[in-house]
Amino acid sequence: MKTENLTVMEAIREELADLCDTGYAFALHIRFTRPAILLRTYDDAWLEEYSRQGMMIRDPVVIWGMQNSGFVYWYDLPDPEGILTKAKSFGIHNGVTCSVGPASSRTISGFSRSSGPFSTQEAGYFLNLTQKLHDLTADVE
């Protein structure tokens, strides 16, 4: 990856630290069910629980992101397995997910904060940011 792209990614990470106090995640260029790059800042205890329980394949955020493009608020997603409900017990709520790219190289992101739901303008900003990171990392295998 080019040095200037790494600089842009670091600036984005710093900005998101202020906007998403309970965490964010990027699964960039998911190919054959695996992302080329995975960035996550959610609580370590949640990440451990999420991985240990194999929640990714049942996560409504991931399912929506693999089937759709655009953005969706977490409160609008069905949660039959209770994964989003469980995330709330780790302080992760008020989320929005974005999805961009073709099915063969999909990028999915998630953003959360403690102060309340994101506005449509903020969700649109995150969608544009997700597209930007998707484009910056297109050459990563």
Rank of each mutant, 00 (worst) to 15 (best):
Q53D: 09
S105V: 04
N5G: 07
W74K: 03
D139C: 05
G95V: 09
G91F: 10
L39C: 10
G82R: 10
T3I: 03
T7G: 01
T41P: 00
D59Q: 04
G101R: 10
P117M: 13
V8T: 13
L77Q: 06
T85G: 04
S115I: 12
Q131F: 04
E49V: 13
L47R: 10
G54E: 09
A27F: 07
T41K: 01
P102F: 13
L136R: 10
E4F: 07
I108C: 06
I108N: 01
E4V: 13
Y73M: 12
A17R: 12
N5K: 07
D79Q: 06
R58C: 08
L133Q: 11
Y24C: 05
I83E: 02
V61T: 14
M1P: 04
G101H: 07
L77Y: 03
F90K: 05
Y125R: 11
R58P: 01
E48P: 00
V96Q: 03
H29A: 10
A11E: 13
M56S: 12
I30V: 14
E4R: 05
L133A: 13
Y75V: 12
T22L: 05
S119D: 08
G116S: 03
D44K: 11
T33F: 01
T97Y: 01
A36S: 13
P60D: 08
T3C: 00
